[in-house]
Computed example of a mutant assay.
Amino acid sequence: MGLNVYLELQFHDPASSPSRIHLHSHYFYSFNRTNSVLTKLLLASPNSPLQYPMQGFTVRPLTSTPIPGMVHSLQLYATTTITPTLTVESNNLLFLNVLLAQVSYQSTVYHVNTGDLGRCLQNGLMKFTFDRIEVNSYVTITTKTFLRYEQLKVLVNSIRMFYDNISIIIADDSFEPQKMTGEHIQHYIMPPAQGWFAGRNLAVSQVTTKYFLWVDDDFVFTKDTKIEQLVEVMEAVPELDLGGTVHGAQFYFSLIYDEGNDKEGGCLYRRSREKYHHLPGHPQCVMVSGVINFFLARTDAVQRVGFDPKLQRVAHSEFFMDGLGSLMVASCNHVSIGHQQKNGKSGLYSKYRHPSNSDQEFKYQLHFFKNNLKCILFG
């Protein structure tokens, strides 16, 4: 996991000015777990006259990393400019090489899975507006339910107060299913107690629109649940998945992966309420790694990651862990959804709602094995 940095050299005519080398950094993210020939570090020879890495240089996003192999070979007055902030100059070759060995690269923008050269940011992002009919063609609402039909009916009724014709997909693994009827409702009955992620997989697999909005079955739409405002952001920023706020509270977290080595594995750090920076052009949104159970997502991107059906009752952050490196996530505070008041739940529901210690142990065993980890830390 990391950031591959590509370097480009430009030379001025030495007859007209002192030798000046412009070092530009072009970058894209690569999070493949498999190795390729491009991961091998190759250095351009210093007769260029600057030696520099041509491929295989990987750094963690937003982390300063020394650029390997940076040396100068000519015995002359030289000025090295690393666009746009750093100039290194000396008439002493040895001293210049000492300085070059200390040069590091650090990205300033958190992005993921992009092949853009140069700057990732786009200025003057276009704004799109959608009326309710357009939202219906762009978004499907999905949810998973289990023994909570009273709450589910409140959710559906609240959706219909604001979006008459939007499609709703329900995955249901209750023991005694109750039929959910109505226009633009697809109710899928599963074998009993298959679990949350199996239900998510089923619901999302049936989505045919570009986006889906994930909601829990005990949420409730309000006047602040404006799906079209999330769609506007998604359309303006390619490859982005979004989160909103639940009952006025904004929940998000960041994930940091330390790759380690093949023998011992790496470490994964989950940090609550830690963000990267604001989404350029959208100050109401911040870049994060994961959000709460209310988010608008690109259907094809989430289908590629999938929800591990082995995780039945202890799963949420785990989806974003599996999607680390392929999903780009933001949390936005300008779109909110409500949460129904907690009512007394049946003993059967509580039994399945609260996982046992064995469920927690299995979850960690799965993650350690599947992701080749030696540690998972929460903070």
Rank of each mutant, 00 (worst) to 15 (best):
L327W: 05
T145M: 07
L9A: 03
S137G: 04
L366N: 12
Q51C: 12
L202W: 04
R119G: 05
T108C: 01
I82K: 01
E239N: 14
Q284T: 04
H278F: 08
L255P: 03
L23Q: 01
V207F: 07
G379D: 08
Q102I: 02
R200S: 05
L125R: 15
V233N: 06
P18D: 06
L255N: 07
V59M: 09
P84D: 13
H72N: 14
H187W: 09
N372Y: 04
R353W: 11
Y352Q: 01
D172I: 01
A203K: 01
G290P: 07
G325N: 05
S19C: 02
I133V: 08
T209W: 08
V288N: 04
V286Q: 06
Y105K: 06
T142A: 15
P280T: 07
G266H: 12
S90D: 15
E235I: 00
A301P: 08
V135A: 11
K374P: 06
I185M: 03
K263E: 15
L348K: 08
S25K: 12
Q106D: 02
S174Y: 06
V112R: 12
M287C: 05
G115L: 15
K40T: 09
H12S: 05
I185C: 01
L279D: 05
S90I: 03
F95Q: 14
R60T: 10
F294G: 08
G290T: 08
G69Q: 13
Q341A: 07
F11E: 00
L373C: 06
E259H: 10
S336W: 00
H354E: 00
N333E: 08
C285G: 03
I166C: 01
V139I: 12
I67K: 14
S73G: 08
Q51E: 09
V237I: 11
N157F: 05
H24L: 15
E259D: 09
G265E: 07
L7K: 10
I82P: 03
C375D: 12
P66M: 08
Q75M: 02
N91K: 14
I169R: 02
R119D: 11
K342S: 09
G248M: 09
Y276K: 15
S336F: 02
L373I: 05
S254K: 14
G265K: 14
G56R: 15
L117R: 13
G344R: 13
T81F: 07
I21A: 07
F57Y: 14
T114P: 00
F251S: 13
T108S: 07
F251M: 11
H24C: 10
Q106V: 10
M1W: 12
T39D: 14
V237R: 05
L9H: 04
I169D: 02
S336A: 11
F219E: 01
I159D: 00
V71D: 05
F295Y: 15
T65A: 13
